[in-house]
Design a protein around this nucleic acid. Structure first.
Length: 555
RNA sequence: UGCCCCAUAGUAUAAUGGUAGUACGACAGAUUUUGGUUCUGUUUGUCUUGGUUCGAAUCCAGGUGGGGCAACCA
């Protein structure tokens, strides 16, 4: 008996609708991005919700670009958005644009004018704002509110024909200037913008507002469940009002709480600032919470889908711990990423009793979690590099690595014991001298010895060099957007550390951009497109869990 | 001082009037040739006050707290 997973509130709504025969059980959702920026992980939640709901209930999902503001929109964004959705693993039923419906929307508007439910207003933006009232005071009617249907029709046609400059006139719905819901105080439907549109070019100089485009577009496509974020809750009465007055297909809007992740920001405006002001290298900087950033960082689509599934969905504001996202990618990569050895901060280790010039090829499993991943050979010699962190001159009791007199196993190889070490002029450890136990060879250990620690290494003469980019959280505070002052003042100055010359297994020279590995004991890394033939570049996706680091911090 | 939304462990999220559970985290232990993985155990919660009911996290009312709404943005 499989346990039935409980439904989230949106699934509950859909199941209720299906049970009640609403729309004959048909489910059609839509994902409606505005093409004015790149998709981020908050969008991923929405994408997973919209596409996931449709998949689960045998429905479909349209991709519809909400392109009603030509000033901020661009085809560059259209292309990136489509690529990101497909990368995430979803395919839309049809690709639509709100701009496809401009003619239809114009006719809808004319229809409302004829019904006496819309009027052309000559007021300035300041005048309109002044008459709008405040949340606690009712607004007042515009002096243009009582124009005749004929005059409104003519003026609206003249607006379309380009007879007026930007801002000279608007078309407003005639609802109620005293409505307690501000969105019902004669909201704007159309404004004049003599601007070139990325799709319709110069065909239009009037453009519909969001409120007069989104719900109508939903209706035109016969969307059954229009799912959006919480800030649109107060728009819903208006969404319903237009549909009712126009007497068109009744799509319904449902709202959920957008995703917030700690130690980052999620507004397109802020992300755009980070890009434009050079705080990051671009929309796909691996520190960015954009899908293109996560992709370059090494996150997989499935790990992001799993994350979206695990955070669930509700109507209360939330701040998700980025640790959950990290758990999701570790969980997947643990099973799928091949292990390899890389030394980020090398220090030389010489095995004094290992024959000079002798080279052994040792057997190494590629992934202990997956026997099918096979084995490889790693080259061993008397001079190695190990991680500087794996040696301490004066180690505490619980340090299971190298120090004077301490023994460790070299992964896949022998047990070595530290006999002495040297320092350079600056007082840094420069060479560690060890002796090895020939009978302790991995796989055929007859030494009878057990050691607490196993460390990774590369053979100095055989290692390749690589550039490693180590990332930390972009911001040093949990919720930069909620802090006083400029959010950019909370950028973590150590969010990127470049290691130009790490020593890695030579096989890594073959890595293709996008290839993912576990660097043993360090974390998961992904080859970057900046890699060149002799010099691969790796991004650290996420560290391994490190209980020693936690222990060390306590002391 | 108007309208609207929301309130369950540290963070999320279940319990659909009937034993408050799960995941992540934290803590302790076992296993381990990755201080990884895996396994076991522990810890921590229904905002508050009333009401309805045999029985309330759930329904009702009042409070408190958080969030949203007054762009020719979406």
């Amino acid at each position: 008996m499989s346990e039935e997973r409980s439904l989230n509130f949106l699934e509950q709504i859909v199941e209720d609708d299906i049970a009640n025969g609403v729309n004959g059980g048909r489910v059609l959702t839509r994902f409606p991005p505005e093409p004015n920026g790149y998709l981020h992980i908050g969008h991923a939640k929405s994408i997973c919700l919209n596409f996931g709901l449709a998949q689960k209930y045998n429905g479909q999902t349209n991709l519809r670009f909400d392109d009603t503001n030509p000033v901020t929109e661009d085809t560059e964004y259209v292309d990136s958005i489509k690529a990101d959705i497909q990368w995430l693993g979803f395919q839309w039923a049809t690709e639509r644009y709100a701009s496809d419906y401009f003619e239809q929307l114009y006719n809808f508007a004319a229809d409302l004018i004829k019904k006496g439910l819309a009027y052309v207003d000559d007021s300035t933006p300041a005048e309109i704002a002044a008459l709008k009232g405040t949340p606690t005071e009712p607004g007042k009617d515009s002096p243009f509110r009582s124009r005749s249907v004929e005059e409104n029709l003519q003026l609206f046609a003249d607006m379309r024909a380009g007879k007026y400059p930007d801002g000279a006139k608007v078309l407003r719905a005639k609802i109620d200037m005293a409505a307690p819901n501000m969105h019902l105080r004669d909201p704007l439907m159309y404004r004049i913008k003599h601007a070139r549109h990325h799709r319709t070019g110069d065909a239009w100089c009037i453009y519909p507002m969001y409120d007069f485009a989104h719900g109508q577009s939903d209706s035109i496509e016969h969307i059954t469940h229009s799912i959006c974020t919480l800030e649109f809750v107060p728009h819903r009465p208006l969404y319903d009002w237009f549909i009712e007055k126009l007497d068109i297909f009744p799509s319904h809007q449902y709202e959920f709480a957008r995703l917030s992740l700690n130690y980052t920001v999620m507004s397109k405006r802020k992300l755009l600032q980070l890009v434009n002001e050079g705080h990051v290298s671009g929309w796909d900087d691996p520190r960015m919470p954009t899908l293109s950033g996560y992709r370059r960082r090494g996150y997989t689509p499935s790990s992001i889908r799993t994350f979206a599934e695990r955070i669930g969905v509700q109507k209360r504001d939330n701040l998700i711990d980025v640790g959950l996202l990290e758990f999701c990618i570790r969980e997947e990569l643990n099973k799928t990423a091949n292990r390899v050895m890389a030394v980020l901060d090398p220090v030389k280790l010489v095995i004094t009793n290992y024959p000079e010039g002798l080279v052994e090829e040792l057997d190494a499993d590629n992934n202990p979690e997956d026997e099918a991943a096979g084995h490889r050979q790693v080259t061993f010699s008397n001079t190695l590099y190990i991680e500087r962190d794996d040696f301490m001159e004066d180690p505490p009791k619980k340090f299971f690595r190298l120090g004077p007199g301490l023994a460790v196993r070299l992964k896949y190889a022998y047990i070595v014991k530290c006999d002495s070490f040297e320092k350079d002029a600056d007082g840094n450890v420069s060479t560690i001298y060890c002796s090895y136990l020939p009978e302790s060879r991995s796989g055929s250990d007859k030494s009878g010895l057990t050691v607490k620690g196993t460390i990774h290494w590369v053979s100095a003469a055989h290692a390749a060099q690589a550039e490693i980019r180590v990332y930390d959280r972009l911001f040093s505070v949990e919720n930069p957007a909620s802090e006083e002052g400029d959010f950019k003042s909370f950028i973590n100055p150590h969010s990127l550390k470049v290691i130009p010359n790490a020593m890695v297994e030579p096989a890594l020279l073959e890595a293709k951009p996008g290839d993912r590995f576990q660097f043993l004991r360090l974390g998961y890394f992904c080859a970057d497109p900046d890699s060149t033939p002799g010099k691969p570049v790796f991004n650290r996706t996420v560290t391994l869990k490190d209980t020693w680091a936690k222990e060390a911090k306590k002391a």
